[in-house]
Design a protein around this nucleic acid. Structure first.
Lengths: 131, 131
DNA sequence: TCGCTTTGTATAGTGTCTGTGTACAAAGGA
DNA sequence: TCCTTTGTACACAGACACTATACAAAGCGA
């Protein structure tokens, strides 16, 4: 039931890690419209952070239109329409990808291995969300 | 001569953006051993930040073995041997890639376009550093 | 309906981080 | 030797991340 993990030692803020992981699950349709996310307190306990930290992550997802957030009721996943892509979003993606690859190579990951990973992801995108 | 830009409005710290951009250039061999990076004050002026901010980025690169940093002399690019890849580095890469793709798709970038971009990068990695 | 529980929200406090100002120290050149 | 160049050290201000605690809305059982 929605096992996710974050790295408390990372410099990336916990709430951002949580939002990123959940967003990946949502885009992958591992979690779909109608489902409930765990309550902020549940997930917070699970991850070892304060429930306000999880709440911040949920608010981020709510702002992006992924979930409906109401007290007493929890976080419900919504059917979300894709926004129109912006030039800026595309530029950010391209640059971030370049920097991510560079970091991987700089850390010693073999270029071929990185390439294979990229191709694998590309294939998955082409074949739709199904595994 | 080494035009790079950062986004001062971004939540990502300026010094980290600078280090990331430079690391990408280094991995790509757009800058090679023996060359000089601009002085911290030069680059700082260019980017609109304080020279200490650039210095922090340079220190990060120096810690990774990319440059030799000495006062009075500037930052010289080194011949750097790739470190042995760790399991952790690989895991971080995979996860970051997944989250990056998810963010792109969430922002409306067409899956096919993202896939194409990944494949293009993979190809470039396979063909060596040359364009 | 009433009262309790559940669940997200608001606010304040604390420690850390980011970026800047300013002074300093090492290297090099005239 | 003296001046300039260049990275470094340190202190400060503001912003940020996370937590503690109290609050408000929704739901549920009697």
């Amino acid at each position: 039931m929605l096992v996710l993990q974050i790295d408390l030692a990372s410099t990336v803020p916990a709430y951002e890690q949580i939002a990123s992981r959940l967003r990946a699950l949502l885009v992958d349709e591992k979690v779909v419209a109608g489902q409930q996310l765990p309550t902020v307190r549940e997930l917070a306990l699970d991850l070892g952070v304060h429930h306000n930290t999880v709440a911040e992550a949920y608010r981020q997802l709510a702002a992006e239109g992924w979930v409906d957030l109401r007290r007493g009721r929890g976080a419900t996943v919504l059917a979300r329409r894709l926004p129109a892509p912006t030039r800026k979003a595309h530029a950010r993606f391209t640059q971030a990808l370049e920097e991510l690859i560079a970091r991987g190579v700089a850390e010693g990951l073999p270029r071929g291995g990185v390439a294979a990973e990229l191709e694998q992801r590309a294939l998955k995108l082409r074949n739709g969300a199904r595994e």
